[in-house]
Computed example of a mutant assay.
Amino acid sequence: MRQTGLAASAGAAWVLLAACLWGLLGIFGKFTQQEGVSPLEIAFWRALLGGGCFALSAGVRRSTLPRGRDLLITGLFGLGGVSIFYGSYQLAVRAGGASLASVLLYTAPAFVALSGWLFWKERLGLRELGAIALTLSGVALISLGGGSGVQVSVLSLGWGLTAGLTYSLYYLYGRVFFERYDPQALYAVALPVGALGLAPFVSFAHKSPAAWSNLGLIALLCTFAAYSAYSLGLRRLNPTRASVIASIEPVVASLLAALLFAERLSALSLLGAVLVVVAALLLSTAPGPQLQPTTHPDALP
Rank of each mutant, 00 (worst) to 15 (best):
A101S: 15
L141Y: 14
L126W: 14
V93I: 07
L129R: 04
V139Q: 11
K121Q: 15
A108H: 07
A113K: 06
L105Y: 03
V139L: 13
A131N: 05
A133Q: 05
A95K: 04
G125H: 05
A140N: 01
S115P: 10
L126H: 09
L134E: 03
R94N: 06
G125C: 09
L100F: 01
L100K: 03
A133V: 14
A131S: 06
W120D: 14
L136R: 09
A131T: 03
S99E: 05
A140G: 04
L105A: 07
Y106A: 02
L134C: 11
L134F: 10
A101R: 10
G138F: 10
G130W: 02
L104Y: 07
R123A: 00
A140K: 04
L124Q: 12
A101M: 03
A110R: 07
S99Q: 08
K121H: 15
E128N: 01
L100S: 06
G125M: 03
L136M: 09
K121P: 01
L129N: 12
L126I: 15
L126V: 14
F111A: 15
A131V: 08
G96T: 04
L100Q: 11
Y106K: 12
V112K: 06
A113H: 01
G116P: 01
V93D: 05
S99H: 10
G130M: 09
A131D: 01
V139D: 07
L141D: 07
E128A: 03
R127T: 15
L136P: 00
G138Y: 07
A133G: 12
L114K: 07
S99F: 04
A101Q: 03
S99P: 01
Y106H: 11
G138T: 10
A95G: 04
G130R: 06
T135A: 02
L129K: 04
G138D: 14
A140M: 06
R123M: 11
L105F: 02
V103N: 15
R123N: 04
L141W: 14
L118A: 10
L136E: 00
S102H: 13
V139F: 13
L141S: 09
E128M: 06
T135M: 05
L134H: 07
A131Q: 07
F119M: 14
F111C: 14
S137G: 02
V139A: 14
R123Y: 13
F119Y: 13
G125E: 09
Y106T: 00
R127Q: 11
L124G: 00
V103A: 15
T107M: 04
E122N: 06
T107C: 08
G130T: 11
L134Y: 08
T107P: 00
